[in-house]
């Protein structure tokens, strides 16, 4: 029996846009805060397993825009938090660690517990599973390496072996896939290059070959796609661009055309950024658009670290600043932060 529903889906209705030219920062701040307040429709409840990632996307964007304070109030009234009762998975762990790093509150974590959870997911061949059910993916390698590095616990895993596994996922085009033999994909490449950068193993990357593949992701409109023959998408402004920066080949694409493309994907009326001009905006693409502009040194944005995907000053604080004494946290704040932490510690 042929498929039936597939043919009767309503088409997405394009939105009207104003002329574009520059980053509508204030609109984007308003947009991010508004999503947090509106949660009772089907589209948002079915995404609830991703709420922790949403928190990271929203909050990092606000920080890059220099507006993290705007969220403080919303967040501490109840806000994003994690989702209790769901099974732990390494995907949510990184977002939670990144969010706590943003607020300089990593000390609310039971760091040993978190790092034991992550190191327990490493397999004999050096790969990482996403959870106890064993799915393996180089994304999980990145998450493990990035989290443990932020928590200063990389010594908990076999780093050489982790690097070997990532290298075994390298393809003849210079890119990387999910598992050995998997097709090269810009998102997977970011994860592999990021993990190799963090572990000081970038010499395993053929920079000219990979750089060539990555710069061929730029299409005529200036936007970047994630694989050959695909349409451009704002999120690859992050995955491709950060990879090019890490391997020092970012001058192989046209930065001006990419800036123009990202700015063209803004909703100037209601805020937010979409994957392509005239599509509906979402928090995921809003984050990647702003993060991409930050990598492109767009004026007025904080710089972001291409490997850790956190603002530069946050990364500096993690690795260079001495830990200061725990500041006075209000009870409500502390309760919320513990709630955030509980998602992956339960």
């Amino acid at each position: 029996m042929p498929l039936l529903f597939y043919h009767i889906r309503p088409e997405a209705i394009p939105k009207t846009r104003y002329l574009m030219g520059e980053l509508a920062a204030d609109k984007h701040v308003k947009y991010i805060i508004s999503i947090e307040k509106k949660k009772d429709n089907f589209e948002s409840v079915v995404m609830e397993h991703l709420r922790m990632n949403g928190a990271y996307w929203g909050l990092t964007t606000l920080d890059l825009l220099g507006k993290l304070d705007a969220m403080m109030e919303v967040l501490f009234v109840g806000g994003f938090a994690g989702n209790i009762g769901h099974d732990p998975h390494i995907l949510y762990t990184l977002s939670a660690v990144q969010v706590l790093a943003l607020f300089d509150k990593l000390d609310v974590l039971d760091i040993d517990k978190v790092s034991n959870y992550i190191s327990g997911l490493q397999n004999e061949d050096g790969s990482f599973s996403g959870d106890i059910w064993g799915e393996v993916d180089t994304r999980f390698s990145y998450i493990a390496v990035c989290c443990l590095s932020i928590l200063h616990r990389l010594d908990k895993v076999d780093v050489d072996n982790a690097v070997n596994y990532i290298v075994s996922c390298k393809n003849l085009d210079g890119g990387f896939g999910c598992t050995p033999g998997g097709e090269s994909h810009a998102g997977q490449i970011f994860c592999c290059v990021g993990a190799l950068a963090i572990t000081g193993a970038l010499h395993h990357v053929d920079k000219d070959l990979l750089g060539w593949w990555l710069c061929e992701r730029q299409v005529k409109s200036g936007g970047l796609n994630g694989r050959p023959e695909k349409l451009p998408d704002v999120c690859y402004s992050w995955w491709v661009l950060s990879s090019l920066i890490m391997i020092d080949r970012v001058h192989w694409i046209s930065k001006e055309k990419l800036v123009k493309y990202i700015l063209g994907c803004q909703d100037l009326e209601n805020g937010g950024i979409s994957d392509r001009p005239d599509d509906a905006v979402d928090i995921f693409h809003t984050y990647f658009g702003v993060a991409g502009l930050s990598l492109l040194e767009y004026p007025g944005l904080k710089a972001i670290d291409p490997a850790y995907a956190l603002p530069d000053d946050v990364v500096k604080r993690i690795f260079f600043a001495h830990r200061h004494c725990r500041s006075d946290l209000s009870l409500a704040r502390r309760r919320l932060l513990l709630k955030l932490a509980v998602v992956f510690c339960n």
Partner: peptide, 19 residues
């Protein structure tokens, strides 16, 4: 059952015709 779809109530009549 080999296919599921979310359908707007107004489309139920289209379905009847299609089937």
């Amino acid at each position: 059952i080999d296919e599921v779809g979310f359908v707007h109530p107004s489309q139920f009549s289209t379905l009847k015709e299609a089937a």
